[in-house]
Simulated scan of single mutants.
Amino acid sequence: MGPRRAPSTRWRLPIAVAAGVIVTVAGLILLRCVYIALRSRLSTDPLTDPHGYELIAGTVLAFPAAAVVAVAAPLLVAPGPGRTRLTKTVTILLVVLTPLPLIALLTA
């Protein structure tokens, strides 16, 4: 048997990998939702989204995706200054990205 590691160090890498996958998928969903909502809102072609379903769905789905990113992103790094820096960066990005679909919906 090898040396025993503390439970926190034993699970750190699997948790970081799982958090990385979750953050990547949720982040891509968030970016896609923002893109769909803004494309629908800024399009000059009325046949792009005639009923506004893309605008509504992009707005509604952006918020849960942003919440998942906000919760899972700090799990990517070990506790300490790296986690604080990552949390601040993710918070700034989410504060900038998340309102865009809502603004697009409210100004439509």
Rank of each mutant, 00 (worst) to 15 (best):
67 A>R: 05
68 V>M: 02
57 A>W: 03
85 R>E: 10
88 K>E: 07
28 L>E: 12
4 R>K: 10
27 G>R: 00
71 V>R: 08
103 I>H: 04
84 T>I: 13
4 R>W: 13
21 V>I: 15
91 T>S: 14
53 Y>L: 12
6 A>Q: 11
99 P>S: 11
85 R>I: 09
96 V>H: 06
57 A>N: 05
96 V>T: 06
56 I>L: 15
15 I>M: 12
95 V>I: 15
105 L>P: 00
73 A>F: 02
92 I>L: 13
44 T>V: 14
55 L>S: 00
68 V>Y: 01
108 A>P: 05
46 P>Q: 12
29 I>C: 10
81 P>Q: 15
85 R>C: 05
59 T>R: 00
36 I>F: 09
97 L>Y: 02
56 I>V: 15
101 P>M: 03
97 L>H: 05
48 T>L: 11
100 L>V: 07
11 W>T: 14
47 L>T: 14
55 L>H: 01
76 L>K: 04
106 L>T: 09
44 T>S: 13
11 W>I: 14
22 I>K: 04
35 Y>W: 13
4 R>V: 14
50 P>G: 09
74 P>V: 08
22 I>W: 07
69 V>I: 03
66 A>V: 02
2 G>K: 10
19 A>Y: 04
56 I>F: 12
21 V>Y: 12
104 A>L: 05
44 T>L: 15
30 L>Y: 02
32 R>P: 01
49 D>T: 04
28 L>S: 11
77 V>R: 05
6 A>H: 14
23 V>M: 04
25 V>N: 02
13 L>F: 14
101 P>D: 04
13 L>E: 15
108 A>C: 07
9 T>E: 15
9 T>V: 10
16 A>F: 03
56 I>K: 03
105 L>Q: 02
100 L>E: 03
51 H>R: 13
80 G>E: 11
82 G>T: 06
91 T>D: 05
15 I>W: 07
52 G>N: 06
60 V>S: 07
59 T>K: 00
87 T>W: 01
55 L>I: 04
101 P>V: 00
57 A>D: 05
19 A>M: 09
42 L>G: 11
75 L>F: 15
78 A>M: 11
16 A>I: 05
13 L>V: 15
67 A>G: 11
30 L>S: 01
89 T>G: 03
65 A>W: 00
97 L>W: 07
87 T>H: 02
104 A>E: 00
